[in-house]
Amino acid sequence: MKMPLATFAVVLAGTLALACSSGDAFKGGTAERKPPRLAPGSADVAGVVETAKPILAIEYDVSVDTDKPMNLCKGTANVLINSTLKFRPTGKLKCLLVGEKDLSELFKDEGVEEEIDRTKVPEAGKFTRKANTSGGARFTPPRPNLLGPLIQDVDIYKNYRYVEESTVEVNDPQSGPISDKGAFFIQVLEAGVPFTAPISGQRYENVIHWEISASGFTNAGKIGVFEKTEYWQNARPISIPQIKMYTKLSQLFSGGMSAIGDAFLGKVIITISVKSESRF
């Protein structure tokens, strides 16, 4: 016999109610006991602290060149990405004139992150965001970071463009608090295309080639924002086989030489290309 759910609800309720009132097993006899628990109750395990786990270790070849072209620095970066998608590269670059440089100095912006309420920012789900930088700059709204990161359908990124105005505040040790305004512009150049990493030769089948540029910020160097960053991001398995950053020498290296360098050398391009990667 078939009947709609509404009737089912009533029939089920009636059956249950009858069972209860007749003192049937539904009520659960007074002699019944709950089984002893082998595991502690919820209160006992509520204190279990989940720590971020490493998910991906990538070794990158790093090359800093000018658009003339001229190689300024060479080195290797090791990046350990954890399950909160936080990462900070370690390694050293050997550079002309300035000698050895620590990579953490170049990538100031990959440090502090805040929990962001995804439901209260525009384009939620399209890309990740970060509110702070390790240099202390704070963006409102939290600035765009990476696409995805779990990209189930690359097609939604085909021809994707997005512009967002941003305000940034930073406490500069020399000049005090600085408030600056600018805009971020995301542009997807290709989506769902293959890409072969130039150093490792590894082929990635489902790459989104995209860029994010920053414009209008007058204190870009102080807030750790590059003029443009270009990503080759593989959707599945997740990886970033190559990144190119476009900036000025003065933003990378402080000191009098840098300002002169800007005039003579033009743009600086940092190319980060995967050498090997391991998954956890």
Partner: peptide
Amino acid sequence: HAFGVDAAMQEQ
């Protein structure tokens, strides 16, 4: 469906 980042996936 896996994305090659199993520890992160598992948490999610």
